[in-house]
């Protein structure tokens, strides 16, 4: 029975060694080295891409955070400005009111004084008129008195009637 266990043929040993070592050398140079390098490079590039993506994400988050802070600060500032403006407005309105009131009061006072003056003057005028009229009447009465006694009496009575009407 020809079985190979106890009797490995020298030819097969030789050719196996030659074939395997040749295969090892050729594949190492032309296949394994480029393949392992390419795989390694690709893995590295993927890793780098992931790392840079992570970094970009962090940067993004940082920027967003910064923006938010900025926005918050701006909002706060706006609120302060608005508040100040409102206060200022109120102040101005209040001031204006006070000024207007005092001014108005002053004007009214002035007007009142003017009116009083005018009244006084008018009254004085009236008094003058009255006095001059009275004098005129008296002179006319006296003239008539000197012309005709009867008529003088009637005149006086008439005048007196007029005076009463006045």
């Amino acid at each position: 029975m020809s079985f190979d266990i106890g009797n490995p043929s020298i030819g097969l040993v030789f050719w196996t060694a030659v074939a395997f070592l040749l295969l090892l050398v050729l594949l190492r140079k032309f296949a394994w080295k480029p393949i392992m390098e390419a795989i390694g490079e690709r893995e590295k590039s993927i890793e780098d891409a992931l790392a840079s993506a992570e970094k970009a994400k962090d940067e993004m988050a940082r920027l967003t955070n910064e923006n938010e802070q900025l926005l918050k600060a701006a909002r706060a500032e706006r609120d302060i400005i608005l508040k100040e403006a409102k206060e200022l407005k109120d102040q101005i309105v209040a001031d204006a009111k006070v000024t207007a009131q005092t001014e108005g009061a002053k004007l009214i006072e002035q007007a009142r004084k003017e009116i009083d003056d005018q009244k006084k003057r008018a009254l004085a005028e009236v008094k003058n008129q009255v006095s001059s009229l009275s004098l005129e009447i008296a002179r006319k009465v006296l003239q008539k008195e000197f012309e005709d006694g009867q008529k003088q009496e009637a005149l006086v009575a008439d005048l007196l009637k007029d005076v009463k009407l006045n």
Partner: peptide
């Protein structure tokens, strides 16, 4: 051996 050489050099070429 020939099959292995053909297959893996072509695969290495594909990587390149």
């Amino acid at each position: 051996v020939i099959l292995l050489l053909l297959i893996f050099t072509s695969v290495a070429g594909a990587y390149k």
